[in-house]
Design a binder for these strands. Structure first.
Lengths: 194, 194
DNA sequence: CCACAATGATGTCAACGACAACATCGTGGG
DNA sequence: CCCACGATGTTGTCGTTGACATCATTGTGG
């Protein structure tokens, strides 16, 4: 039996294939035509769902933020212990995502997004809402100094992003990541005593 | 008068044009043929100096590390004041480089370098030697806890890299960078008292 | 002074993104 | 019931790119 003329849910299939290729081969080797081949459609078909390559990348970034949000929330929900332990669990989850899907993360923060900045920004805010709440909790408990939670979050976020970059750049081995995250979090709290 | 058949120093001209294009348009729009056009040479000429595109990118990364090293050293040499002030000046210079040449920096740490990893790694070590010495000085002075200087440097480096990423991703405005660096450095030292 | 290495020019090929024209499917109004 | 139309997929084409092969020019050392 021939494959039906209509794929069924080509859009989702393309996004899935793209995410896999992105993880295994990086962004340079991501080609619309190759994705079409993998999914078994003609080279012109993706155009119905993504007017151009950038649209595909934007969609990838958006779905990436959704998954990131889920993973952060799951990590925090599963964490037990004091504030530092909960913060460390969340930070570790972020770094795991950032290193496991490095190319995708780069896409998410690429800034090169065409006119869709609105959707993406909302998706990003949803993803980081968990962390934001966690920081507010820390400030109430006195583990973190009071002040603009966004400001504190920025520095913490920057540190985690940087630790992930250490791995991506091949500067540290994967098995040192958890240790680095733990030290960074501990140090951060030590420098933030209320 | 026609341009002479031989360009004279095509390699350097290509690197210069590439660095400019990289800064103004990003890595996606960096094409060997376009560079050849800008320099006034045929599309096949660059091949004599860079066997493929990746070779050009590797060379760019290497020269980038050299310039980064110079800028870090210059910033540190020009800095006056106590250890924190000197560290802040160096960190600020790094973030300035990382945000002014974001695409180039991404290239430098891309990890995708073909077999030339050796040369690049040496260039990177030379560039960061200044920071390494500065950290050792801090440990002698007691401003930083004793311990593996590389370990301390990694966390500091990660934080600066992350702050630069905040700017690159459009999360913070350029005029907040210095302030963020200053706070990060201060916080780092507060969490590292010997 | 000339043969040769270094450097640049020209031509070609396959892959890609963008686009247009055409084909197929399913669904809802008449 | 059916068929017109919109949604979706196909095929063909164009311009650009990176890689490669072959040829042209230049300067230099034996």
């Amino acid at each position: 039996m021939q494959r039906p003329y209509h794929h069924g849910n080509l859009r989702a299939a393309l996004l899935a294939a793209a995410e896999r290729t992105l993880r295994e081969q990086g962004m340079g080797d991501l080609s619309l035509r190759e994705l079409a081949r993998q999914v078994g459609v003609s080279h012109g078909a993706p155009r119905r769902h993504f007017p151009d390559r950038q649209a595909l990348l934007d969609a990838l970034a958006e779905s990436g933020f959704e998954r990131l949000g889920e993973e952060l929330r799951a990590a925090l929900d599963a964490a037990a212990g004091d504030f530092e332990a909960r913060l460390r669990a969340t930070a570790t989850a972020y770094v795991r995502f950032a290193t496991h899907d490095a190319a995708l993360l780069e896409l998410m923060f690429a800034g090169k997004h065409s006119a869709q900045a609105g959707r993406l920004h909302e998706a990003a805010e949803r993803a980081f809402a968990v962390v934001f709440e966690l920081i507010c909790e820390g400030q109430r408990d006195g583990a973190l100094e009071a002040g603009d939670p966004e400001r504190v979050g920025l520095l913490l976020f920057a540190t985690m992003q940087g630790i992930a970059a250490l791995r991506t750049g091949g500067i540290v081995a994967a098995d040192r990541l958890d240790e680095l995250v733990a030290e960074a979090v501990a140090r951060f709290l030590r420098g933030s005593g209320a």
